[in-house]
Structure formats: structure tokens, C-alpha cells
Amino acid sequence: MPMFCRRNVLSGLFILALGVPAFSNAYQLFVANLILIYVLLAIGLNVLVGYAGQLAFANAAMFGIGAYATALLQVHLSWPFYFAFPAGTLIAMAVGLLISLPALRLSGLYLALSTLAFAQFTQWVFSHWDNLTFGAGGFKSPPISFAPLPVSKPVGLYYLSLIVATCVTLFAQNVVASRIGRAFVSIRDGDVAAQSLGIDLLGHKALAFGISGFTAGLAGGLYSQLLNFVSPEGFDLFQMVIQKATIVVGGLGSITGSVLGAGAIIIILELLREAKGAQEIVFGGVLILFVTFFRRGIVGSLQQHFRGWDEPLHSARPIGSALPSQVRLGEKESLS
């Protein structure tokens, strides 16, 4: 196996990640933790969009639900973080499953709009259900303590995020390599064909939404702890754009791509701080350039130039083929 192969690079990144708190200042540790949270988000979203081909825009909302649920359980019911966190994650996952119900009937841009509408609705609930969510002003959540362990909160949270992100990466890699992953890909490449192969469409779409809700919920719980402040503006459409950017830049239909994409986008966003006042222009330009010149993302380029980067089931669709079939579904009309 070549030195610079997928497994070695990922292991190298993991070892590097283990050492981050030792050689970074508070700001760098914060950014590193943010990257781990976006790794979680990117993996879930990539399973949903890259593998199962569902053009959904609700991930930022589920991220928000995870963060709100975790923090609110701590604030309202005084649950300790270690109970609130898994419970919040399950709530986000349940919402993910709920969104998948209409998604069975919807495809392409119609699914995009209905999930966008759901995201707007979630934002509205966050800012209007005062008794539950404290409204648009947000609220502080109690910081966790890693008491018996001799670590400060930022370092402890960083390692907790690292453990969760690592587990989810391994879990997702197994899922996409399994029968379930193959079913996702066949749904993406044509749901009618998939159905004729005997694949349970509803079940698998729901599963994909559930997985993305689950990882978004985990990410949300950790995010609420990273900031110790939860308010609606962190979960808006800009958030969704960042998440979409991670998977497109990393590589659609690739778990490794999700990891690399999350790192790349967060680092790009932080580096863009140097382009004072022109961040939007540069960020937009970077997105366009990336999509234009690295169509298959970082992972696609790595596969082209290095051996040992193939992943099971990476983008079965050849590059340069037409738009995915589901986008074209039902969009024809003879006359206006």
C-alpha cells in the first residue's frame, strides 16, 4: 500500500488531532474543535446528499435542534450534560426521521424547497417560542465540567468531540460500505430503478435522514457546549451554506471527503479573516472556483493523483454525466 494513501493520511490526521491541545493557543483550540463539529455535520449531510442523493436543506435546522435540545434539557430540567447530550441527539434524529416522511414523495428542487421551508419554520420556532427557547435573544447554557479528570473545559470538550467524531467516521465508513450504503447509492442514481431492485425506498430514505439528524444532533450538542450560548442566528441559511460547502469541497459521496472538506472550509473561513471586508466576495469566489475546477472535490483530485484513495462506492456516477435523474423528475410541462 502506498505511503500517501487514505488510511495513512486519516491516521496521521488523527494523531495530529490528538496533539492539538498541546501546541495551540485558546483560539486555535477553538477552531480545531469547530472543525471536529463540522466533521460530524459533513458526514451526516454527505450520507444524505452525497450517497442517498436527497437535495435537503434542513441540516442546519437539525443542528440547531440538537444544540437547543441539549442546552434546554440542561437549563429547564437541570439534566447533566451527559444525559442531555444523548437525549438532544435523539431528538434531532427523531426530527430527521419526521422530515423524511414527506421526502418520500418529493424529489429534487421540490424537496429542496420543502426542507428550506422547514428550516425557516424551525428558525421561527427558535425565536418565537419564548417559554421554551427564550426567544431570539438566546440563552446561556451551563458549561460542562470534566471534574475528576485533570483537564480544563476547552481541552476536555475538544477530546470529547474528537472521540465522537472518530467514532462517527468509523461508523459511517462501515455503513456506506454495507448493503445499506449500496442501497443509498442506487436510490441516488434512480429511485425507480432502485425500487425495481427490491430496495425499500421509504425505509432507506428515512434511514439517510435519520443518520444525518443523528450526526447533526451530536454536532449541535457539542456546539452548544463550545459556545455555552445558544441563539437562532447560528442555525440559519448561512450555516447551511457552510455545511453544503464542506461536502462539495471535500467530495460528494465520500466519508473521507467529508472529513477533509470540513477541515478545509473551516480553515478557509478563518483564513478569510485576513481579507477584511472582502470575505463574502472571496468566499463566494472560492466556492465557484472549487465547484468549477475540482468537481469531485478534494477527494476526487486525490484519487486522480495518488494511489490508495479509492473508497467503496465513491460516486458511482461518472463525471460529466447529466444532472441526476431525480432532479429532472416531474419538472416538465408542455406549456406555460
Partner: peptide, 22 residues
């Protein structure tokens, strides 16, 4: 991009939106 993935296309138009806004 005309032949690329729909997600990529959507993202490119989002990128354009950012450029125009900035």
C-alpha cells in the same frame, strides 16, 4: 458546470450570491 452535480450547481449560484452581496 452545466453538466455537474446539482448540489455543486446550487452551491455555485450561492457562491455568486455571496460575491454580488459583498
Amino acid at each position: 458546470l452545466a453538466k455537474t452535480d446539482i448540489v455543486g450547481l446550487v452551491l455555485a449560484t450561492v457562491g455568486l450570491a455571496f460575491v454580488l452581496r459583498g
